[in-house]
Write a protein that binds this DNA or RNA. Structure first.
Lengths: 248, 248
DNA sequence: CCTTTTAGTTGCTTTTTGCAACTAAAAGGC
DNA sequence: GCCTTTTAGTTGCAAAAAGCAACTAAAAGG
């Protein structure tokens, strides 16, 4: 685009670049994978097979490999598949944490993603490591985690609750077909407060995001519930107003 | 904490770690610095002094230096001061972008922060490089930017608008003392739509975040306006409902 | 066929918002 | 001085939205 001289000096610069490169921090990607089972929010943890924190529980993740991973997002997807066998749930970048002290191996930055999935869909331990679903109480799990994973998990839980207030993401915690009472229960479990049935239904129906599966119902111990499917799995839609504030 | 054998094997592991380390991507921190001046949202851009994209406009930023920077956040603060001379405005992490292609020098990840500041407070060009405030129209600036900075800027603008909908962050674009019409104007400029005066004031006053500076007023061409100060500069508070949706 | 259980609706009250008209306090022209 | 213009700030009411509770609906089980 520019003249020949600029082009050649750019080429020279790039050639010399390797020699002059900055000292680099290490770079990892970690995952906070949420699911709801047994009426409780759970997070996926793995037992560390190596030092540091060998034998301790941690968020799944690991080093980004510039040869295999085309991008940070691709690395997150790769680790998600390795860990759960699931390829396309809801996956969103949370935040990047990096400092000199957070890992005894040195200056390491980690980009953390959070994922939502249906617990049945997951096949644990594909990565050879011991893994478990740990119930989330308050803003974390009952036991301590490796590295700075406890505050990271707390951030993820806060983000999840906050996004639940004004978006539809909870549908990603349910199978493709679900009922309105199931969806409401999911919100209640994560927000930790009961919601009014009629207000909840009004809100969801007005958002016009659900498609009624005509004639399909789910049986239970009472009247069968109508099944629905989420209309646009990719687009994230917003409620004009937060969902709790005035719970019942 | 564990037994001696575990301790010694951990020490050994850490000693051997350097040899076995992964190939690392390079790591930079970039800034999207917003201000409002002349009734328009502006973003700070710098002219690149070196290849690649030498002479082109880009978001300010650069390589993280593990020897100087204790953390990614600290690196962002350092670059903010280098670029603007301002140390403590509103600074929030936006997102991390990283891939093989986004920079001709190779696999580089960048963590992008976005900052809000009062335009008068800024002293440009402390970093020797040419810098300018570029007006934001729609979701970006009128000319093309280096690297993938155009979509990054679009993400930042979207995040700014979205946060304005349900938080108080606009106060950080104004000097410490400001009037309600000034605050409303700031919202209108960024959201690109007129807001109803009475609804706006009700909303802000109910949030109870402003402190009236009794007896202090700002003169203009009409009735003088009451001056206020934001009460809690650190805490971010939420409106229970988004601000636009039904504009006037 | 009566009770229990859960789903789903309806109607009314309360709260919140949108809107427009109103008052208030200054400046400037005449 | 007073009238017009300009911008700040308030008030009152209609419309919309949400909370709440009582209602109907559809199944299962004894």
């Amino acid at each position: 685009m520019k003249n020949a001289m600029t082009e050649s000096s750019a080429a020279e610069f790039l050639q010399r670049y390797d020699a002059a490169h900055y000292e680099k921090p290490s770079f990892t990607v970690d995952l906070v994978i949420f699911t709801v089972r047994n009426e409780q929010l759970h997070v996926l943890l793995v037992k560390r097979a190596e030092h540091p924190f060998k034998g301790g529980w941690a968020l799944p993740g690991g080093f980004l490999d510039p040869r295999r991973d085309d991008s940070v997002d691709a690395c997150a997807v790769r680790k998600l598949v390795e860990e759960t066998g699931v390829s396309a749930p809801y996956l969103e970048q949370l935040k990047t944490y990096g400092s000199r002290d957070r890992d005894p191996r040195g200056w390491i930055a980690t980009t953390v993603y959070f994922a939502l999935m249906v617990s049945d869909a997951v096949r644990l331990g594909g990565n050879q490591a011991a893994a478990c679903w740990a119930p989330v109480r308050g803003d974390g799990v009952a036991f301590s985690l490796a590295f700075d994973h406890t505050p990271i998990l707390a951030d993820a839980v806060e983000r999840l609750r906050s996004k639940l207030e004004y978006t539809h993401i909870a549908v990603h915690l349910l199978p493709e077909e679900f009922t309105l009472p199931e969806l409401q229960r999911t919100y209640e479990i994560i927000l930790q407060q009961p919601l009014d049935k009629s207000s909840f239904r009004r809100r969801v129906m007005q958002a016009d995001m659900l498609e009624e599966l005509t004639g399909r119902q789910r049986d239970g111990s009472g009247r069968p519930a109508q099944l629905y499917r989420f209309r646009e799995y990719d687009r994230l839609t917003f409620f004009p107003r937060s969902i709790s504030r005035h719970a019942r």
